[in-house]
Design a protein around this nucleic acid. Structure first.
Length: 782
DNA sequence: AAGCTAAGCGTTTTT
DNA sequence: CGCTTAGCTT
């Protein structure tokens, strides 16, 4: 064999050896770095590892695995050096890399798009472990961060009137702007903005439809035309405020690339390799963006699982993944079907449920894992009993050596968390809820962020309106209406009108107040570049009088605490950023979410929706509320086509579990103030009997039992943990003095009847106010 | 302009 | 059932 072919064979062997801890298909997906590749990765198939290794492989060896190129001046000594590396399995050093790499890009030449910031962070830290510090500069981020980074540099080239200091509007902000735009068009129709216009415009933007295109498509349909005119106004309002909503960030980037081939060329050259995770959840604009960037070199790898597509409701199109092979010619497809996560029992259940969907890419997960416990299916009288069962089982698991943090309770909607929370409090189980309210959704945080937005971008009318009278400056709706009118007539921003208020007769009585406010704002604008963001926040909240206006009660205390957290968040940002700016902090805050803070360190049970649980795994999983009307939800009755998405959601939920899975439902539950009786979910029926351990725990009299010779031992559930209290107990009323074993003496502040029990709010003499359930708290009337 | 009360309404959620 | 918001009152 000549030296060249010997070298080529050796190079392949070495690169393969570095990724030898994976199965064949996984390794293929890592090594096939050239050309389009679709990885259909089933749940728990080691997708994250493949992605991380693939990025590492590209950064280290580039096209080497598939290339015939041989380094010039190759010597026999080089070959024996490589042989030695292979024998010792040492792949770390620089000389080896120099000998092997072909066209290995500098680290920043790679774009890895993930679904959440958290996934991006995880990828980076795993790469850091593998490759050391040098891997830090890759663009591993979400679509939105990538676009915003590009737009911050290039938005002027769009020539649409946006400037680099643009504000990012979140959904809430967008909705407010939209409501304003609907007022003239839809008059008193209150739901129009929320339910009709917002989804329609959002869908349009996800398809990269401009207002004009939308109007053209509306041809003759009165309702659609109405929406089109709102869309025009909305876009205009955003542009005037120099603000982008989340959809704009993607759309405008695509527009930028289409308008400026040289800009596209620059980024396409820069991102010589593009990877997209969770491809089944991408929408048409995202597809456009990817095909623009990767269209030339075609080094595009997408990873996804059509069975886990659960974001159709917000514009994700499963088409992207189903027709990838048509859109990218010569695409390779690799299926990862071996599951490493779950027991065989759990996987069997997942397969059985998802098999009821049609129109999937054929794929069947298998595992070498042991059978494990059968999946438990339980039905209870009501949601409180269900919650108690979950709490009790968690405690049993802990007794068996599991940690709290190994267990997760997941559900279809956030509204289901209440009863479970209550049971956890009662049983002393530490828990955390992910989702629901975001830190940046709190009123005081939004207020302060609004100040910062205006300081950064005075044209931001929306946020200006929010802060102009917070704290109270006697600038009410009448004044604002007048200002709005002047602004519209003169084409100025609200900020500008206020700045020149002395020119208008109307404000004569208020000039002093307005001027002092504007003077303050102008001063802050000057400070913006002189001091750090966290100092600016402190200055704003103190000198605007906002802090003082909060007052001094308990609520104010917690608000002030949140504001301090905001300051420390800003300080954290400054620490991590290369070049901290106000703009940068605002951007990070806009793109940050609750789940990004979830560290999984503390030993607590985690509660979240199934959507939030995607991508996570736990040894024990409880899925609560497996009922018709809850999961699948009510809307399936009206829109049957949504059923398959619900089933995929069930599939995602089931496949979160590694060892133990409990599916529970309640015969009746309180939902939105009314008690509803639900049948067990059809998804439970779809599980073959031999795979489940099913029992109905409702009392016999509730259920007319069909007569059978030998009843299949419908076992009555022993009430979990504490036995159910007798109903006739001491009744507590506000004003009563009570005694508690641990908390001592206290006074009842309020009493609320809840199910068969009473929730008492009690002010204890020594340890503050606590909420307790009367029947469980072992209280004595004093 | 600001505070209070009645009415209405409710998925899932990432940016 | 609990929260937000609109509209009404002072």
């Amino acid at each position: 064999m000549d030296m060249h072919s010997e070298f080529l064979a050796l190079r392949k062997k070495i690169i393969e050896a570095e990724f030898s801890r994976m199965n064949d298909r996984q390794r293929q997906a890592v090594l096939a770095t050239q050309g389009p590749l679709l990885v259909l990765a089933g749940a728990g198939s080691g997708k994250t590892t493949v992605l991380v290794n693939r990025v590492a492989c590209i950064l280290k060896y580039g096209a080497a695995y598939e290339s015939d190129a041989v380094p010039s001046g190759l010597t026999a000594e080089d070959l024996s050096y490589l042989q030695n590396c292979l024998a010792q399995r040492s792949f770390g050093d620089e000389r080896l890399r120099e000998l092997l790499a072909v066209d290995a890009p500098p680290s920043w030449a790679l774009l890895a798009i993930t679904f959440t910031n958290k996934a991006a962070g995880e990828m980076k830290s795993r790469l850091e472990q593998m490759l050391g510090e040098q891997a830090l500069d890759i663009w591993a981020c979400t679509f939105h961060s990538a676009c915003s980074r590009i737009l911050r540099r290039e938005i002027d080239k769009l020539e649409l009137g946006y400037s680099r200091s643009f504000t990012i509007y979140d959904t809430d902000d967008s909705l407010r702007v939209l409501r304003e735009c609907c007022r003239d068009v839809a008059g008193d129709d209150r739901n129009f903005a929320n339910k009709t216009a917002l989804p329609a415009i959002s869908r349009a933007k996800e398809q990269n439809m401009s207002p004009a295109a939308f109007e053209a498509a509306a041809s003759g349909d009165y309702r659609l035309q109405k929406i089109a005119s709102v869309y025009y106004k909305y876009q205009q309002a955003l542009r005037q405020a120099n603000a982008l909503d989340f959809d704009d960030m993607l759309r405008l980037t695509v527009m930028l690339f289409e308008k400026n081939p040289d800009v596209l060329d620059h980024y396409a050259r820069r991102f010589r390799y593009v990877l997209v995770d969770e491809y089944q959840d991408t929408n048409p604009v995202q597809y456009q963006l990817i095909s623009l960037l990767a269209g030339g070199h075609q080094n595009l790898c997408v990873v996804g699982d059509d069975d886990q597509s659960i974001y159709k409701f917000r514009g994700a199109t499963i088409e992207n993944i189903l027709s990838f092979e048509k859109q990218f010619k010569h695409a390779r497809v690799i299926k990862l079907e071996q599951n490493y996560r779950s027991t065989s029992a759990i996987l069997g259940v997942a397969n059985a449920v998802i098999a009821n969907n049609t129109g999937r890419k054929s794929k069947k997960l298998w595992t070498e894992n042991p059978d494990g416990d059968p999946v438990k299916v339980r039905r209870f009288e009501d949601e409180a009993t269900e919650a108690l069962f979950i709490a009790n089982t968690i405690l049993e698991n802990v007794k068996d050596g599991m940690k709290f943090a190994d267990q997760a309770v997941i559900y279809r909607m956030n509204a289901q968390s209440g009863p479970i929370e209550k049971a956890f409090v009662r049983m002393g189980i530490p828990y955390r809820i992910i989702g629901g309210h975001r830190f940046y959704d709190r009123m005081e945080i939004r207020d302060l962020m609004a100040y910062l937005c205006v300081i950064n971008n005075p044209g931001d009318n929306l946020h200006f309106t929010r802060i102009v009278n917070a704290p109270k400056r006697s600038i009410g709706s009448a004044t604002m209406a007048a200002v709005q009118q002047i602004a519209e007539q003169t084409g100025q921003t609200l900020y500008e009108v206020f700045l020149h208020c002395q020119e208008y007769e109307y404000f004569s009585k208020k000039t002093a107040r307005i001027e002092s406010f504007m003077h303050f704002m102008e001063h802050m604008r000057e400070l913006r570049t002189e001091i750090l963001p966290h100092e600016l926040i402190r200055t704003v909240m103190e000198e605007s009088g906002y802090l003082a206006s909060l007052g001094d009660d308990e609520e104010a205390k917690s608000r002030k605490e949140n504001l301090s957290t905001l300051i420390s968040n800003a300080a954290d940002y400054e620490k991590n950023a290369d070049e901290p700016t106000l703009e940068g902090f605002l951007e990070e805050a806009a793109l940050m979410t609750d789940i990004d803070n979830y560290d999984g360190q503390a030993d607590t049970v985690v509660m979240m929706t199934i959507h939030a649980a995607k991508g996570l795994e736990f040894p024990a999983v409880f899925i609560a509320g497996m009922e018709e009307g809850v999961f699948p939800g009510q809307s399936v009755m009206i829109y049957p086509e949504q059923l398959e998405e619900e089933r995929r959601l069930a599939y995602v939920g089931i496949t979160r579990a590694k060892r133990k899975l409990n599916l529970t439902c309640a015969g009746s539950r309180m939902l939105f103030g009314a008690t509803v009786r639900n049948r067990p979910s059809r998804f439970l029926d779809e599980i073959p009997n031999n795979l489940k351990d099913a029992q109905d725990m409702r009392p016999h009299f509730e259920r007319p039992q069909p007569r059978r010779a030998a009843p299949a031992a419908p076992i009555r559930l022993e009430r979990p943990g504490v036995s159910r209290p007798v109903q006739s107990k001491a009744v507590f009323a506000p004003g009563d003095t009570v005694g508690h074993g641990t908390f001592g003496r206290g006074m009842v502040l309020s009493a609320k009847t809840m199910g068969g029990d009473t929730l008492l709010e009690i002010a204890f003499d020594t340890c503050g106010t606590k909420k307790l359930m009367a029947n469980f708290a072992r209280l004595k009337k004093l």
